[in-house]
Design a binder for these strands. Structure first.
Lengths: 145, 145
DNA sequence: GATTATATGATAATGATTATCAAATTGTTA
DNA sequence: TAACAATTTGATAATCATTATCATATAATC
């Protein structure tokens, strides 16, 4: 089982992009967090500090190279997370009051049912379905109590 | 069966907000479109022209009052649509190449299954689930051919 | 080691969104 | 209906997140 950084590096190199210290730190930070992060959060979390201009450039490079994917919160924030081929297929649990987002996985069985559901929903439209993503809204334990 | 504008007006008035010509035109535009619209699209579509400053202010007012909901496209655009209590519960079909977004409804049966799925996925997390939304990615008929 | 390519960080520029405010409109009250 | 109060409008300026620029630094290749 190959490690995360090795996978990322291989992918980047094949695209002529270097896996530098800054980029490694960003990937590290995202891998250590259960849910997507904003640029500002990445700025705060990384040590030593990476200037905003570099973070913005790097998350863009990493998104363009399919290492990260961009996510939008209901609070209008842009958040980045590891792409599915690195983190595994998952969905999101969004806490409406506090805007926290955390990852959630379905059981293989549920996942199959969801995929079928998506297929049949799209059938009438003539779309060729390539993926799906479920966002579950609610109140996190903190906000619910 | 009460009309759309009557519902919106009643809701706004109860919140001390007026349902003006501009706002009516924006709601009209969104009601006539199968999928969410950007501010720029709203600007182009409404006649006579509503200045950007007013559109921005109004979509914000209408979102704050739960008449509209905000949606984010993968192209980083902000899009607005009628809130579910006005347009009915639905999901989105996103064309990855061309970024078009269109509404899609599940059958009552599928919808029930999806709701159950969301419930069970969130069970372990301690979240109290209040809603869900499915995004189906794929290629629209145009892009697929 | 010389050369070439890519990345970095500081700063300026851009673009989308929000704030400001005087004038216009709408709603209310006498 | 006139006078008053509250809200909305449109023009403009200000803000904020993001992107572009560019000289320097770092890494890869020959």
């Amino acid at each position: 089982m190959v490690g995360l950084h090795a996978k990322v590096e291989k992918s980047l190199r094949s695209q002529g992009v270097r896996y530098t210290t800054n980029r490694r730190a960003l990937i590290e930070a995202l891998d250590n967090t259960p849910g997507p992060l904003t640029v500002e959060e990445l700025y705060r979390v990384t040590e030593p500090r990476i200037p905003y201009s570099s973070i913005y450039r790097d998350v863009r490079v990493l998104t363009d190279t399919q290492v990260l994917t961009l996510h939008h919160g209901a609070d209008r924030s842009n958040r980045f997370e590891l792409a599915e081929w690195l983190s595994g297929h998952h969905h999101h649990l969004v806490c409406v009051p506090c805007m926290a987002i955390s990852d959630v996985s379905l059981s293989p069985d549920s996942e199959r049912r969801l995929a079928r559901l998506a297929e049949s929903a799209a059938a009438a439209s003539g779309y060729r379905v390539t993926g799906h993503s479920l966002e579950i809204e609610g109140l996190c334990p903190d906000c619910a109590s």
